[in-house]
């Protein structure tokens, strides 16, 4: 019993740190653009398939998927941002229309992955990320889990430093606080937002590299689950704060692992129940704009 509990908690912490990385890109994009990127999960999967492709076709270490994710985010992110976002911000109902548009984009990415790689689940060899295990409290977890958690912490800290220590980061936070005022103070809102969008996509793709390890495999069609999970995590944490997202990831990770250990068949419910409960209990406390005035 105690061993199981320790297993669930150690595993949950690793899993949760990793999910902090999965969600942090969504948080950044949502904070800056007030748009829920419903294709977020698909960008994560894209990262996973990128790593899979590097590993199987080119024989490279899947970790090369990290720079590939960054490159992919730049190549896809900038044109995508300028093609759709400024127009959406001017539209009749930016919030809903962008929600729907990104949903359509998710379908396109999903279909393209299915057409390119087939609908099957793909996994990656453990050896690529070490192949051994590391134990804490007598609980052994594969090296890949520790690598994923390490990369996640580095990436989240990096984002935190970017937001708090650089000029662009300050501008990004100003836009998060108030887009209109940021415009008025002469911040190049579109350029700063586009950069944040690209960073958000890169982080999603980077997280995707580890999905085959942490989730066992990567397949088209799991994007929707990843998006909702990420949204739950970013709500548990706080908007615009990457460290808060890490905390949200831990809550989800430990909760999820406890469920998987003790009530395995109900563990799928965790992200959805967390989302509904948190949104209903604390809609205003964590982000003021969630509730209508009447």
């Amino acid at each position: 019993m105690q061993a199981l509990l320790e297993y669930a908690i150690v595993g949950g912490v690793l899993y949760g740190i990793f999910f902090g990385l999965v969600a942090v890109g969504l948080n950044l994009i949502f904070g800056v653009m007030r748009i829920i990127n419903l294709a977020h999960g698909e960008f994560v999967i894209l990262g996973g398939f990128g790593a899979y492709w590097l590993s199987t076709s080119l024989g490279l270490n899947p970790l090369w998927g990290l720079p590939l994710a960054a490159l992919g985010a730049v190549v896809i992110g900038f044109p995508l941002y300028y093609a759709v976002v400024p127009g959406l911000q001017r539209s009749r109902d930016p919030e809903m229309l962008s929600f729907i548009l990104f949903f359509g984009l998710a379908q396109i990415i999903d279909a393209i992955i299915s057409l390119g790689f087939g609908p099957d689940q793909r996994s990656l060899p453990d050896e690529a990320l070490g192949g051994g295990t590391i134990s804490v409290l007598g609980q052994a977890f594969p090296d890949s889990w520790w690598v994923a958690a390490g990369v996640a912490i580095l990436a989240i800290m990096g984002l935190w430093l970017y937001l708090t220590r650089t000029r662009l980061g300050f501008a990004t936070r100003a836009i998060m606080a108030n887009r209109d005022e940021a415009f008025a103070t002469g911040i190049a809102v579109d350029r700063v937002s586009a950069i944040a969008f690209v960073i958000g996509l890169a982080l999603a793709g980077a997280a995707g590299v580890f999905v085959p390890y942490l989730q066992g495999s990567v397949a088209p069609g799991i994007g929707n689950n990843l998006t909702t999970t990420s949204f739950a995590i970013l709500i548990i944490g706080s908007l615009g704060n990457p460290v808060g997202t890490l905390f949200g990831g831990l809550v989800f990770g430990v909760g999820s692992m406890l469920m998987q250990t003790f009530y395995a068949s109900w563990s799928d419910l965790v992200p959805y129940v967390l989302l509904v409960v948190i949104v209903l209990l604390r809609p205003q406390g964590l982000f003021g704009k969630a509730v209508r005035n009447a």
């Binding site: 909702t228 704009k289 969630a290 209508r292």
Partner: peptide, 13 residues
């Protein structure tokens, strides 16, 4: 009580 996208995603969940 939620607005826009929050409602949609919570309803999805």
């Amino acid at each position: 009580r939620l607005s826009g996208a929050y409602f949609s995603i919570a309803n999805l969940a």
